[in-house]
């Protein structure tokens, strides 16, 4: 499917550039997340990737009292099972905390990015990533979050967070990523 490392490097380069840019105003949520609870296949999201250039520098520690967007650091990404777009039980707990943070603050546009691991086909994964993002929007709405201005985008398998070809990487890449812009 996509074993070519040149593409991976370049894609990662794009992703890294994006991350660095975003961290100038906010913390890249994917770098600061704690591992979701209760799932044995869930890796530590910050697990090092030995096959790729070094990851972006670790995010600064939260300084909630000094930064108007610091609360966004506490918003965590959620993860999905292979070829699934229903919200896992561990993701429900994460989203309940996320919903509390989102309801208590305002400002900035929230973009939910749907991502998939590389094992499907690019076309199917585009749809799957969108279903994941939309499932998170629906869940947040059910929790009382004002979702009218929330945007979604599916990257399918095109912009993986982890570049490896094993379950630990795949599990990191089956996610909905919270991005504030």
């Amino acid at each position: 499917m996509k074993e070519g490392h040149p593409m991976r490097r370049s894609r990662l380069g794009t992703a890294l550039a994006l991350c660095v840019l975003l961290m100038s105003v906010l913390v890249w949520a994917g770098c600061s997340k704690k591992s979701a609870k209760g799932v044995e296949t869930e890796p530590t999201p910050a697990a090092p990737d030995t096959t790729t250039p070094p990851p972006p520098p670790p995010p600064p520690p939260p300084q909630a009292t000094e930064d108007a967007t610091a609360w966004q650091d506490a918003i965590q990404d959620v993860f999905f099972d292979y070829d699934k777009y229903d919200i896992r039980s561990d993701a429900r707990e994460v989203l309940q905390k996320d919903a509390s943070g989102l309801k208590a603050h305002s400002g900035g546009t929230l973009v939910l990015e749907g991502h998939c691991d590389e094992r499907g086909t690019p076309e199917y994964n585009l749809a799957l990533g969108q279903r994941r993002a939309d499932a998170v929007v629906a869940y947040l709405k059910d929790l009382g979050v004002e979702t009218g201005s929330v945007q979604t985008v599916s990257y399918g398998e095109e912009r993986p967070f982890a570049q490896g070809h094993d379950e630990s990487s795949w599990a990191q890449n089956r996610r909905v990523h919270f991005r504030f812009q």
């Binding site: 749809a127 969108q130 939309d134 629906a138």
Partner: peptide, 9 residues
């Protein structure tokens, strides 16, 4: 084509 949006695909 395929349109995926909300609860529809």
């Amino acid at each position: 084509f395929s349109n995926t949006r909300g609860r529809e695909s």
